[in-house]
Design a binder for these strands. Structure first.
Length: 584
DNA sequence: GCCGTTTTCGGCCCGACTGTTTTCAGTCG
């Protein structure tokens, strides 16, 4: 039983409670408990064994009992009771934007339908529009949302979101009257998937009309979802929603903080303001009046996000860390955290060539690295078991080594500092062994051990497999530990906290696979990684020269996961990297 | 359902926008 599994169950309770019309705060308690458990640095099982569940903030007697029941019986009474009450199909309706729990319950109750296909029909037939409190426009909106949901999904990957957000941002930034402009929301926080895109603008009131006009007429816009005095929303051709919010220059810092989120971070910030006799909203920081209400006539002067944090006894919290996962404790004590940045990256580790399933030769990949200013390339093609990906036989490995030697010598003779390291992405076989005999493994400069098959093994077996791979003296690092593909394939069942502990102990790194489909190791394990001193490597897993640029996404995630340059292998120079490989 | 050094009961962040309403409920972030 993983933390993730328990969190999912609790979140299911939260969703079903909303649909059942349960008390809002009771429902929220389950959501908060889920959030807390996801952020734990240790396994929840430990708390069950030690009977210390209620020591965790947000978990009281009742939820502790639910968790224990689930541990013992694989069922949760509160969840089972809700499932009796709420039809399963309705859960999916919650993903339809513009349709919330109240109206879902109403439609279900009045029309007796439970499936999205039925909902679609009811919208088309006019049955939904005839319900009290709903109308023609509501039905149309629901229908359209379903269509987009079916076509594009609920969320987009980081790279997909940036492809829309960046041109949109450039466009808005340069409009007449725009004084300040930034991308806010989950994109500013470097989340691995994005729901919608938020752009914030500071402008004088007389210019807001024309800015909104230009925004809703942008080429990427296919539908205007809303247009108000301070906010407009549009949908782009690839189904993403973009919100543009315009505030005055004075309101900008508080608005930026507000629209950056996360929701959980904002809630804590508002609580902190209240504890200090102030109120924080998107317009600014204000004093409270005698009735403990926001007194808009008494603003507290704060001209930047940094100053708002200072007024609430905090140092500036970088957007990446605004998730209510320990940032308040850290930035009370510390002014900054040293975080890795793009400029720190010196080399490219984990790249494929035409020897296996890469599109370009080793030389072409190396040239692309040189062009981008990197000092070294670690080639790591697939190992022999990965036949589907052209995994290398022992003979091919030996030939590749010769190729690399030759290339390195030619760079040397040309007076170039650049060098190529010999690596392999070795499959971790089902019993946890690596994919070549030891004498071959010893010939590589580095070995990335990855799982590519049997991804859905039971957790116990999978853990044995991973721990054995970590133990192997040839293993330099683990590749994409969970095997997930974002929005497409789930993580393998793992106790990652234990894997991190063991890897750190054995001086084995765990990569942050920077491919935007993966972004694995997940940033949520950043606290655990920091605590254990785990080393990572920001690896593009490049299958082409363009793929090298994935490093950008990896750096975003590494920052979010609180990695400083010293704990990132490829911030080392080639010589330092070589020395580290020898020592480890 | 959870929480607490003003509290063990009574709060729990808060404002914009929309659609369906005649003053507000639902949804969103």
């Amino acid at each position: 039983m993983t933390n993730q599994e328990i969190a999912e169950k609790l979140r299911e309770v939260y969703n079903l409670m909303q649909l059942a019309g349960e008390n809002r705060f009771r429902a929220i308690a389950f959501d908060r408990a889920a959030q807390t458990i996801e952020a734990l640095n240790e396994e929840i099982i430990k708390h069950i064994d030690e009977d210390s569940l209620t020591d965790i903030k947000g978990i009281g007697k009742s939820i502790a009992e639910d968790i224990k029941a689930y541990h013992e019986t694989s069922t949760m009474p509160v969840l089972e009771a809700l499932k009796e009450k709420v039809p399963k199909g309705l859960m999916e309706w919650l993903n339809i934007s513009g349709l919330g729990p109240k109206n879902i319950a109403k439609i279900h109750k009045e029309l007796g339908i439970t499936e999205i296909t039925e909902l679609k029909e009811a919208c088309q037939s006019g049955a939904v529009a005839d319900l009290p409190g709903l109308g023609k426009k509501s039905a149309e909106k629901i229908l359209k949302s379903i269509e987009y949901l079916e076509k594009f999904g609920e969320r987009a990957r980081l790279d997909q979101a940036l492809d829309i957000a960046e041109p949109m941002f450039e466009f808005v930034k340069n409009l007449d009257g725009v004084v300040k402009c930034e991308i806010a929301g989950s994109l500013r926080r470097s989340r691995e998937t994005i729901g919608d895109i938020d752009i914030l603008v500071a402008a004088d009131q007389e210019n807001t009309e024309s800015i909104f006009d230009a925004f809703v007429e942008h080429d990427l816009v296919v539908e205007v979802l809303g247009r108000g005095e301070t906010k407009s929303s549009i949908r782009t051709e690839n189904g993403r929603q973009v919100d543009l919010r315009i505030v005055s220059e004075k309101e900008y810092p508080a608005a930026l903080m507000y629209f950056t989120g996360s929701k959980e971070h904002n809630i804590v910030m508002r609580q902190r303001a209240r504890e200090r006799g102030m109120a924080l909203n998107e317009y600014g920081l204000f004093k409270l009046n005698d009735e403990k209400e926001t007194d808009f006539d008494q603003p507290v002067n704060a001209r930047s996000e940094k100053e708002i944090y200072r007024k609430l006894d905090l140092h500036f919290i970088p957007p990446e860390h605004r998730e209510d996962r320990g940032e308040f404790e850290f930035y009370t004590e510390n002014e900054t955290m040293n975080l890795v940045s793009d400029d720190d990256i010196k080399g490219v580790i984990h790249a494929h060539s035409t020897y296996s399933d890469g599109k370009y030769t080793i030389k072409q990949m190396a040239e692309a690295c040189i062009e981008r200013g990197y000092d070294y390339l670690g080639i790591s093609d697939h190992s022999r078991t990965a036949a589907y990906a052209g995994g290398l036989t022992i003979d091919e490995v030996k030939r590749q080594w010769e190729d690399i030697n030759e290339l390195n010598e030619s760079y040397k003779s040309e007076g170039k500092e650049f060098r190529i390291f010999k690596g392999i992405e070795s499959d971790i076989l089902s019993d946890g062994s690596l994919d070549y005999p030891d004498d071959i493994l010893d010939g590589f400069d580095f070995v990335i051990a990855s799982v590519h098959s049997g991804l859905s093994m039971p957790q116990g077996q999978m853990m044995e497999r991973f721990l054995r791979a970590i133990e192997h003296p040839a293993t330099t690092m683990l590749g994409h530990p969970t095997g997930r593909l974002l929005l497409k394939r789930d993580e393998s069942k793992l106790n990652l906290n234990q894997i991190i502990d063991y890897a750190a102990q054995k001086n084995v790194a765990i990569e942050i696979n920077a491919n935007p489909w993966r972004l694995d190791l997940d940033w949520r394990y950043g606290n655990k990684a920091k605590e254990t001193g785990l080393i990572t490597s920001i690896n593009p897993d490049a299958h082409s020269t363009d793929g090298i640029d994935y490093i950008r996404f990896g750096v975003m995630i590494a920052r979010k996961a609180k990695f400083d340059p010293a704990r990132v292998l490829n911030t080392k120079s080639a010589e330092e990297f070589k020395a580290w490989l020898k020592d480890s």
